[in-house]
Amino acid sequence: MHTRDRTPFAIIVIAALLATGYSVFPAWFSSTIVTVIAKALVVIGVVTLMRSGLVSFGQGLYYCIGGYVVGLGGQLLHVTDILALLSLAALTGLVAGSLLGLIMSRYREIFFAMFSLALAMILYGMLSRSQALGSTDGFNVASPTLLGAALTHDQANLAIYLTTCLVGALIAYASHRYFKSPLGYAGLAVAENEIRVEYLGFSPSRVLYCNYLVASVTASIGGAITALNYGHVGPDMAYWTQSGEFLFIALMGGAGNIMATFLGSAVFEAVRTYALEFAPDAWHLILGVVLILIVYFLPNGLWSLIRPARSIKRPTEEPCGRAS
């Protein structure tokens, strides 16, 4: 018996509540929500790759690309419109992912993980040594506009917030539909047995290539939103610790549902915020302990608290002497 899919409805309701709540949220909380959604979009890509048996330590590569597209778009191209910058970041991530994906889709297991990490660190090294791009300090992002209209500081914050809620909802829904598509299920099959996938008429490399493109675009959009939210970009966006943070969130939330990425991102930001406030010298230790507890007691992530994994009941065998 098939259960009704409530995820699209949940996405709409949560996005609407967040959008209407801006008027009552304090400024710091609204900024935190934007951060949570931005990182969740990157983690959607991490989870997409994990579903196909790949672990990426280099999503910071596209996260940084999206951020620098926003920064350079305003500085060099004089493009400051929020929607145009997000579109440009998505397009740049798609182009970069389509090129690098031709190579990455050929690797598996630890080789994929290390190769993705190496690419991100190459970008970090190039940016940190570029004096024109601010070296290790980075540079500020130009004041954003919307549909050609100049915005005050408060108006810009509102526009970024509402746009983030809308974009987050659209990507969450599109990713959910992708997971439910034949190509999405093929990714799960590739993680189990690539040879059987080939027998079914799918190309494992093509499936992984498509998943890599999804991860590239979502990470670039997440980086672009982060740059707009903070008004600054730097090479640390591509550093390995940033990529590790995304993997951390993916493990916390789990891969059972697209909403798990947003849950993991929200819990991560909450734990880090209060850990920094009450134990600024030991917040890394606190985060590590939290992850260990989650992995030990909830191996499927925090989402298993909301939607426990269903046990598969096997049919009982009939007694040997029973007549047919």
Rank of each mutant, 00 (worst) to 15 (best):
M1F: 14
R4N: 05
R4G: 07
I11W: 09
I12P: 00
V13W: 06
T20D: 03
F25T: 04
F29E: 12
K39R: 14
I44Y: 12
T48A: 15
R51H: 14
S56G: 07
S56T: 10
G58W: 07
G58E: 07
Q59S: 09
G60M: 04
L61M: 06
G66M: 05
L72S: 08
L72D: 06
L76P: 00
L77D: 05
H78S: 14
V79C: 03
V79M: 09
A89C: 03
V95G: 03
G97M: 02
G97V: 02
Y107Q: 10
R108L: 08
I110E: 08
A113D: 06
S116C: 10
M121C: 00
L123R: 01
L127T: 01
R129S: 13
S130D: 10
S130A: 15
D137H: 04
D137G: 05
L146V: 05
A149E: 12
L151Q: 08
L151C: 08
T152C: 07
D154L: 11
Y161C: 10
L166C: 11
V167Y: 05
V167R: 07
L170F: 12
Y173Q: 10
A174R: 01
A174Y: 02
Y178A: 15
S181A: 14
A186E: 07
L188P: 00
I195Q: 14
I195R: 14
Y199W: 12
G201R: 06
V214S: 01
A215V: 01
G222L: 04
L228G: 06
G231T: 05
G231H: 06
W240Y: 13
T241R: 05
F246A: 10
M252E: 04
G253C: 08
G254P: 02
N257S: 15
M259H: 05
T273S: 15
A279V: 02
L285M: 15
L287Q: 12
V289K: 05
L291V: 05
Y296I: 08
F297V: 03
P299G: 10
N300G: 09
N300V: 04
S304K: 06
L305R: 03
R307Y: 12
S311F: 09
E317A: 15
E317I: 11
P319V: 04
